[in-house]
């Protein structure tokens, strides 16, 4: 596991998943007497945003803005930090749009201000090069089930100097930072998955990139489709787009009927009807954000899958258009 992200095995604290790792980071740092203010980006996963929102009086939280392509600039970071900011957290890659942040530069800015830096690499690890040591971060979240490992395992990689207090009590496991009997098979599975991810990283990325490019070229032919964060550097396997005039849930249901499993954004916010906080932070209009579809490819998808998706999408959009025309005609 440590190898995949260029860290030392002693720095790894295994948890029950990415959510627990992010909770441990946010609450564990906030519980430290040294830290009374943190700054996190507006596009973080719910498992960062919600614990931060739950901190209450003990620790203030500032939010770092993103540009229209979903990127955190050095300038935005500088603007968000205050003299008493103790920790900054910016995710390595976004779970909806796939946008990759320049973690190395952002961490450097934090370090030069004597601020601890955490990055949630749940989506990035196994898809792009992720380096705890080269990036110079002090903490990093990694999830097993996003890189073909089992559900139920994750890790917080931590620099020993980071002030962090355990959140689960009742044992001395994981350097006293996480009590509870270790989920040995899941952790072992996580380890093997990480090893495979490292070995096959380039191959998997090239494969995903090929599928993503094919999909985006196909989407150009639909004028009502907007690919989000198109100009930003993104994960090779992720495309998120909006379809003007469509409700995302309806679109997904129709796609599901046609045998295609995609989502609107995060599975964790699945079933909710509010527009994605990530897209809103990028300034995407609510109407378009509500029609968002996230396609994330895996190593087992093929070009035929892409063609099938494009065909299905075309049929749904055309059907909708003709019914809209008919409705207009009948008025």
């Amino acid at each position: 596991m440590a190898d995949l992200v260029d860290a030392h095995p002693d720095q790894v604290v295994f948890t029950s998943g990415g959510t627990e790792a992010n909770n441990l980071l946010v609450k564990g740092v906030a519980a430290s007497p040294d830290i009374s203010r943190i700054a996190i980006s507006k596009v973080e996963h719910m498992s960062m945003l919600e614990p931060a929102a739950a901190l209450g009086d003990t620790c203030a939280v500032d939010y770092i803005a993103v540009d229209s392509d979903g990127r955190v600039s050095g300038q935005a970071l500088q603007q968000a930090v205050r003299p008493d900011t103790g920790l900054v957290s910016v995710m390595s890659a976004n779970n909806e749009t796939g946008v990759i942040q320049d973690v190395q530069s952002l961490a450097e800015i934090a370090r030069s201000n004597n601020i601890w830096f955490h990055t949630d690499a749940s989506q990035a690890a196994g898809k792009i090069n992720v380096s705890f040591s080269d990036w110079g971060v002090h903490a990093m979240t990694v999830s097993s089930h996003k890189l073909y490992g089992p559900l139920g395992a994750g890790a917080l990689v931590v620099d020993k100097r980071l002030p962090l207090q355990a959140q689960l009590h009742g044992g001395v496991q994981e350097h006293r930072l996480r009590a509870g009997t270790e989920n040995v098979p899941a952790i072992a599975g996580f380890g093997v998955a990480a090893e495979l991810a490292k070995r096959e990283l380039t191959e998997r990325a090239l494969h995903a990139r090929k599928l993503r490019d094919a999909l985006e070229q196909g989407l150009v032919h639909f004028p009502s489709v907007t690919v989000f964060a198109r100009e930003a550097e993104r994960l090779p396997n992720t495309v998120q787009f909006g379809v003007q005039g469509f409700d995302g849930e309806t679109l997904l249901m129709q796609l599901d009927r046609m045998g295609i499993a995609v989502s609107s954004g995060s599975a964790c916010t699945s079933g909710k009807t509010e527009p994605s906080h990530v897209l809103r932070a990028m300034g995407v209009p609510a109407a378009l954000a509500l029609g968002s579809v996230r396609v994330s490819f895996g190593k087992d998808n093929t070009l035929a899958d892409v063609e099938q998706l494009l065909k299905a999408l075309g049929e749904i959009i055309n059907a909708m258009k003709s019914s809209a025309v008919m409705m207009a005609a009948s008025v």
């Binding site: 909770n23 996963h45 719910m46 919600e50 614990p51 739950a54 089930h145 559900l151 964790c268």
Partner: peptide
């Protein structure tokens, strides 16, 4: 009061992706 936040799984009492096989 929930102790793990982020997604509101398990009726808001315990967030985090459910490990189906487990």
């Amino acid at each position: 009061e929930a102790q793990m936040h982020g997604g509101g799984h398990e009726r808001g009492m315990r967030s985090g992706t459910l490990a189906t096989h487990q």
